[in-house]
Amino acid sequence: MLPALIAAKALGLKLIYIPDDPTIPINMLHGLNFVVVKHIKEVVQHLQGQESLTFLTNPLITDQKLPFYEAVHKDFSNVIGHEQAKRALEIAAAGEHNVLMSGPPGCGKSLLAETFPSILPSLTDQAQLEVMSLYQLVGEKRSHYQTVPYRHPHHSASSVAIIGGGSSPKPGEISLAHRGVLFLDEIAEFTKKTLDMLRQPLETGEVTISRAHSTVTYP
């Protein structure tokens, strides 16, 4: 629903009929007016002038908030030692750089990666809409929308699962990590094909999936 609403706004639509669903963040979609309905019959009757429905505009619902639940995360400040590694990650967070960590098993690489999202800023409203749209497209729920996404696919994951695709192209792990962190543990275990496919998206910031009937671009 959310990607459809964003597309409708981009097309210049001003009034939209939406289902009675409190999880739709209509207060974040500025410039749109909504008519909330519980059944398609209400739309037909309203268009025929038989029924009066409630119009919602953004000023009337400014108190609505996105569903938000505190998540238990590992905190970067709780990592003891590793001063040089933490300094490198702080620079990466400030400049949005990619990082390659190398070291023997058990030295703390995975822990540093898992705590890395805690030093990234919370998502803006626009970024939240982008992330929510991607997760809705794959049918996956997130319980905390304001924090950055953190994805860590297993090295056995297929290239389609990581890059995206399928008969009806859907976002992959690289898109689900949009605005957040994609952690590839044991990167040498990933197939050469998958690593080659990651090269262009990392450079351009978007991934284009081409199929016989459609071409889709995801962030």
Rank of each mutant, 00 (worst) to 15 (best):
I26H: 00
N98W: 02
H213Q: 10
T217H: 08
D125F: 02
S52D: 14
V36P: 01
G108V: 03
T62H: 13
A7T: 10
L11C: 11
I18C: 06
P59L: 07
H155S: 10
A177Y: 04
H178L: 01
S167G: 08
T62R: 15
N33D: 15
F34D: 01
H155M: 03
P117F: 05
E83Q: 13
L195W: 10
V36Y: 00
G95E: 07
L60R: 07
A113N: 06
A188L: 14
K192H: 15
I6G: 03
Y69L: 14
K74C: 05
L13G: 01
P201N: 10
L182V: 07
L129P: 00
K41T: 09
A93S: 11
S52C: 06
I80L: 13
V43A: 04
A4G: 10
D75L: 15
I209Y: 07
A8N: 08
Q84D: 14
H152A: 13
H213C: 04
E203S: 08
T217K: 14
G165F: 01
T23N: 13
R199F: 10
G108R: 02
K170A: 11
P25R: 04
V72D: 09
Q146R: 15
Q128C: 12
T208R: 12
I119T: 01
V138Y: 06
P59A: 09
D185P: 04
H39V: 03
I24V: 06
L2P: 01
Q126N: 11
T215N: 10
K193P: 04
V160H: 08
V160N: 08
L15P: 01
K65Q: 15
S156W: 03
H82M: 12
L60S: 14
Q128R: 15
K170E: 09
P219K: 08
Y69N: 11
G139A: 04
L195N: 06
Q84R: 13
E206P: 02
S143V: 09
S214Q: 15
G103F: 04
P59F: 07
V35Y: 07
V207T: 13
D21E: 12
Q50A: 10
P201D: 09
D63S: 14
S52I: 10
K65D: 11
E140V: 14
L5N: 04
H46Q: 09
V181A: 07
V35F: 08
K65M: 14
E96P: 00
D20M: 08
I6M: 15
D21P: 00
F55M: 14
N27I: 00
V37A: 02
M132T: 03
H73V: 11
Q126I: 12
L195Y: 10
H30W: 09
D125E: 15
S214K: 12
Q48D: 13
